[in-house]
């Protein structure tokens, strides 16, 4: 992996080369998802309020989610908010977990869980729309 005729340490060779050119992606993705979540959150809370007012709970929910716009927005809300959540939790782990292997494990587990639950919520939304 490392050239055997090179006595410089890996850190010594990396110094002065500039950034890895990918650190911005995480920060930017967090901003893009947060902007997308502003209207999505307002829609979501309005939907919950609407459902809390509407009569028969199960029928009201199925009628609401069967609307194509509501179904689309619910799928977007689940996908974007779980993505935003795992990005945020990653920063928390990076700040507070000093041990590198535990930190990597926590970040990985959170990503798996976030995308797993997002998929479950999205599939459930589709089942509610198309009838299970």
């Amino acid at each position: 992996m490392f050239a055997s005729n090179n006595l410089r340490s890996p850190l010594g060779r990396a110094r002065g080369l500039g950034s890895a050119k990918e650190g911005l992606h995480h920060w930017w993705a967090q901003r893009v998802t947060s902007i997308a979540l502003v209207p999505l959150t307002i829609w979501f809370v309005a939907g919950i309020v609407h459902l809390a007012v509407g009569g028969e709970p199960y029928e009201a929910f199925m009628g609401w989610i069967a609307n194509p716009c509501n179904a689309t927005l619910m799928i977007l809300f689940l996908g974007v908010s779980f993505h935003h959540a795992q990005l945020g939790m990653q920063v928390v782990y990076e700040d507070y977990i000093a041990c590198h292997s535990w930190r990597t494990a926590a970040i990985m587990l959170t990503k798996f869980a976030a995308y797993g639950f997002a998929a479950l919520g999205i599939v459930s939304t589709l089942i509610c729309c198309f009838g299970g």
Partner: peptide, 14 residues
């Protein structure tokens, strides 16, 4: 978000 997923999934179960 886990509670939200649980809520939507429960509706899919019936």
């Amino acid at each position: 978000l886990l509670m939200l997923t649980w809520w939507v999934t429960s509706a899919a179960y019936g």
